[in-house]
């Protein structure tokens, strides 16, 4: 059983990502956070194997979340996938510079997303 944290403020996108991850058929449990704060609250409670985060969010943004994860000893080894959109390449690059493992650009095909997760979880 692996716990995956999806941080994304759009509900429909979040539930779509959840479905795609569950369609992988592996023993993944998806936790959803609608804001950066919710993610910060979930982090210490659940041992996550992967974090998937959006960049633009209401309270703290994805860059700030990635910086927190990658600078905290007990979380820094959790791989992070950035979900970015066309036009926010600059922010995606900043996230990668802070230590995020991979990124995917919206809109994406389900298979693309699944492939990203597979690669990041089984390097």
């Amino acid at each position: 059983m692996k716990n995956i944290l999806v941080v994304e403020d759009s509900e429909s996108t979040r539930s779509m990502m959840k479905t795609i991850i569950e369609d992988l058929g592996e023993d993944y449990h998806v936790f959803e956070a609608g804001t950066g704060f919710e993610a910060l609250k979930l982090l210490p409670a659940e041992g996550f194997s992967l974090i998937i985060t959006d960049i633009n969010m209401p309270d703290i943004n994805g860059i700030e979340l990635i910086n927190f994860v990658k600078s905290t000893p007990q979380y820094k080894d959790i791989p992070v996938i950035i979900v970015s959109t066309e036009g926010s390449e600059e922010d995606k690059d900043r996230g990668l510079a802070l230590g995020a493992e991979a990124y995917i650009t919206k809109p994406f095909k389900p298979e693309e997303f699944q492939e990203k997760i597979r690669v990041v979880l089984n390097p």
Partner: peptide
């Protein structure tokens, strides 16, 4: 906040294959 509303609209429109909405919100987003 206004930017984020249109930005999110662009994101979900793309994911749900709504090209017209996506293109227009992208242009406004700029």
């Amino acid at each position: 906040a206004l930017f984020r509303s249109i930005h999110t609209l662009k994101g979900i429109s793309g994911l749900f294959g709504q090209e017209g909405l996506k293109d227009l919100s992208h242009a406004l987003e700029e």
